[in-house]
Design a protein around this nucleic acid. Structure first.
Length: 732
DNA sequence: CGTTATCATATTTTT
DNA sequence: TATGATAACG
């Protein structure tokens, strides 16, 4: 490794890193803990370290395992490493926990009684199966919702407790019910040759633990294991990492305990807090210099997080200067809050800010609606991150389920999904008979359906309908065996099964949208076909890949779009200008978190939110907010009070120094917003003819409280609710 | 079997 | 306020 060319390449690699970053990058063998505060360049350190290991010959590409939580992060990491190294890195395992486990399991799941085409169930599939398990037990699924039960099961799995271990630990009636459901659920999953997300991890650990030769194979192969966002790992992931790093002990983890916000999903902050106890010889590096935010923002974040007990002390600093104070505004209600936020956005854009630089965060998705309404009214383009995801859309899931059944004939959940979609006249009763018959005979659902005439009690219409359906499926399966490209397969599938026809028959805008989504899915498949190697079993590789993709990276950096999202979704991102709305007790911190002792995690969430901001930060709250229809009065969030006043500009309080206070004595928000809406009400009456800038001519069909008028528009016949004062409407 | 009406119910969610 | 699930009806 000592030739001059590579020597200079390494120097280049290290140039521009600060001292602790360089220390982390160049660390040799042995466990390494990198405590990286927000915005301190942790991805940089990770990618440079990988490049360093490879560049110096300390590890070859196929000896490196780099783990992330999201596909996006994995993709980005690979790209950055490739840019640093100046070459492709196909042999390197840079992927999510789940993808790595799925890949291992495709090779070794047969040892646990699965085939390599096992199906991966997402949360919705899993919940459906839990429901069936509960039904089998005769449990009232209203008292014990499948969601809650699945959450409990998932939690157990994440702690490496199987059904037996779980049942030994529990006492309450709810828990014993869960234990019974857990047992049936596991049995069913296995019988269907299916795994849920948690199983990917659990079964990977099982394979490694039960089969010495498998463990040896992987633990020898991976000379260096690197993990991103280590604070979010749970017990299974921890165990999996331990097994893989057992041979070389080169485990490098990067994380920030202050950003652990997925405890409700089983993430164990203890993994990072006790890393040094687990690995007494661990080298620890702290990254505290932040390259993102102003010192004011960092000081606020530091001050808030200081209120937590459980933490590794860190103190973020920057040389970017103080910057402007944090603006804290208290408004009357959520509408006034929305108007304030949008008003500020308009002002900032007028002053030259790009819309893409602005983000609005909130604690719960429900909060987005009011803000969206206001943005629509003011005609400001925006995008919401996190809504319904591409792969969770019904039509996409249907199409995937069709493919899944072709590969895995035992998969009852997928079969159930597609058998009557589009409508074929095979209802619950008929399907139930087929399933019961399959169970009784010990055959797959596919086989039972293929011989529908032998299913007892099935009506002639159902037999005929099933026969037609299975004929189509049989033909499609032959095409799978002929290795038809997946794009083509999918396309003919959608036509042969009548799916497209049914959508077209609907003649609605939504159906058209669904068709477009399906076209996009075909496109995804075509891309896969184009890049796939000439290997066997491409269908299951495609399906398992698709199952592990959350959203199709819809996050666009479109120039003209304001971005709205929950704070959870904001982790890892940065924006010059950030608004956090709903800073009230009960909303943020969320009431449910308060009940369950999750205050520290809420505070970490606040820390994450605040540290996303580069230049300007706005924190807003509403004195009054409609929650589920009813008005609630919430106190300002405690997190606001944890920010030292000298860092803030609070318009609702007399400021210590003159200036702002002189210009606005008293409450700024209450006087303006409430009076404005009330004066606007009498302007419109039922029956008034009006004109709207965008929708055209219409007639007022109703007047509601809060200055809202209902207008039916002549153009498209639609009826819309508009804010009289803000909507661009005029009386004729 | 499919449609409609009513009622309960309501964080956050990388895979 | 909105959605989703079940119950009753056609």
């Amino acid at each position: 490794m000592a030739d001059t060319a590579s020597q200079s390449r390494i120097e280049e690699l290290l140039a521009g890193l600060n001292a602790p970053q360089r220390e982390a990058v160049t660390h040799g063998d042995g466990p390494l803990l990198i405590l990286a505060g927000a915005g301190t360049g942790k991805t940089r350190v990770l990618t440079h370290r990988i490049a360093f290991l490879e560049g110096t010959g300390m590890a070859r590409a196929n000896e490196i395992l780099a783990i992330t939580f999201t596909n996006k992060a994995a993709q980005e990491m690979r790209e950055r490493v490739e840019r640093l190294l100046g070459r492709r890195t196909r042999a390197m395992w840079v992927m999510t926990f789940h993808a790595a486990c799925a890949r291992m399991l495709r090779a070794d799941a047969h040892r646990l009684g699965y085939t390599r085409q096992f199906t991966i169930y997402d949360q919705a599939d899993a919940r459906r199966l839990v429901k069936r398990s509960l039904d089998e037990l005769g449990v009232d699924t209203k008292r014990f919702t499948p969601g809650a039960v699945h959450h409990q099961i998932s939690d157990a799995k994440n702690k490496l407790r199987d059904a037996e271990a779980y049942s030994r630990l529990v006492g309450s009636y709810f828990e014993t019910t869960v234990a019974d459901a857990y047992r049936i659920y596991e049995r069913e999953l296995h019988r269907m040759n299916a795994m849920d997300f948690d199983d990917l991890l659990v079964n990977a650990v099982n394979v490694l633990q039960l089969f010495q030769e498998v463990r040896d194979r992987y633990s020898t192969a991976f000379r260096h294991v690197l993990v991103d966002e280590y604070q979010d790992t749970n017990a299974v992931q921890y165990r999996w990492l331990q097994l893989l790093a057992s041979e070389h002990r080169n485990l490098a983890v990067v994380g920030d305990d202050a950003q652990s916000i997925y405890g409700f999903r089983g993430a164990d902050i203890g993994n990072i807090l006790s890393f040094e106890e687990t690995f007494p010889d661990a080298h620890v590096v702290k990254l505290e210099q932040n390259y993102r935010s102003t010192q004011t923002i960092l000081s606020a974040a530091n001050a808030v997080i200081a209120h937590n007990r459980e933490q590794k002390h860190k103190s973020l600093w920057t040389n970017l200067g103080q910057g402007e104070p944090i603006k804290i505004r208290e408004l009357d209600d959520e509408h006034a809050e929305g108007r304030y936020v949008v008003g500020e956005i308009e002002r900032l854009v007028d002053e030259g800010a790009s819309r893409a630089e602005i983000a609005v965060f909130y604690r719960t998705n429900a909060q987005s609606r009011v803000i969206e309404d206001t943005l629509v009214r003011r005609d400001i383009a925006y995008q919401v991150i996190g809504g319904t995801k591409f792969y969770e859309r019904a039509e996409v899931k249907d199409a995937i389920a069709y493919l899944t059944v072709l590969g895995n004939p035992q998969d009852v959940v997928s079969f159930t999904r597609i058998v009557n979609s589009p409508r074929r006249g095979i209802g619950q009763t008929s399907l139930g008979r087929v399933i019961a018959h399959a169970d009784a005979m010990g055959i797959s659902i596919w086989q039972a359906a293929a011989h529908a005439d032998q299913v007892p009690g099935l009506g002639t219409a159902a037999v005929r309908s099933l026969g037609r359906f299975m004929d189509t499926m049989q033909d499609l399966r032959e095409r799978v065996e002929q290795r038809v490209p997946i794009g083509d397969l999918l396309e003919s599938l959608l036509h042969d099964t009548g799916y497209i026809d049914a959508l077209q028959a609907e003649r609605t805008i939504e159906a058209q949208g669904r068709e477009e989504n399906l076209a996009e899915l075909v496109e995804v498949a075509r891309e896969f076909d184009a890049t796939a190697e000439e290997e066997a079993d491409t269908l299951d590789v495609f399906l398992q890949g698709v199952a592990l993709v959350a959203d199709a990276d819809t996050r666009t950096d479109d120039e003209g779009l304001i971005t709205l999202m929950t704070i959870h979704n904001a982790k890892g991102l940065e924006y010059p200008i950030v608004f956090i709305a709903g800073m009230e007790e009960g909303v943020f911190p969320h009431s449910r978190a308060l009940d369950e002792g999750g205050l520290e995690e809420e505070r970490r969430l606040a820390y994450v939110g605040v540290t996303r901001a580069m230049r300007s930060l706005y924190l807003t709250s509403a004195r009054r907010r409609a929650v589920f229809g009813a008005t609630q009065y919430g106190m300002r969030s405690r997190f606001l009070d944890e920010i030292p006043p000298q860092l803030t500009d609070r318009a609702d309080e007399p400021r210590i120094r003159a200036g702002v206070a002189a210009q606005r004595p008293g409450s700024w928000a209450s006087s303006s917003s409430s009076t404005r809406t009330e004066t606007a009400v009498p302007a419109f009456r039922m029956g008034d003819d009006v004109a709207h800038a965008a929708f055209g001519a219409g007639v007022v069909t109703g007047v509601e409280a809060g200055g809202i008028v209902v207008v039916r528009f002549a153009g498209d016949g639609s009826e819309r609710k508009l804010m009289a004062e803000y909507a661009p409407i005029t009386k004729l």
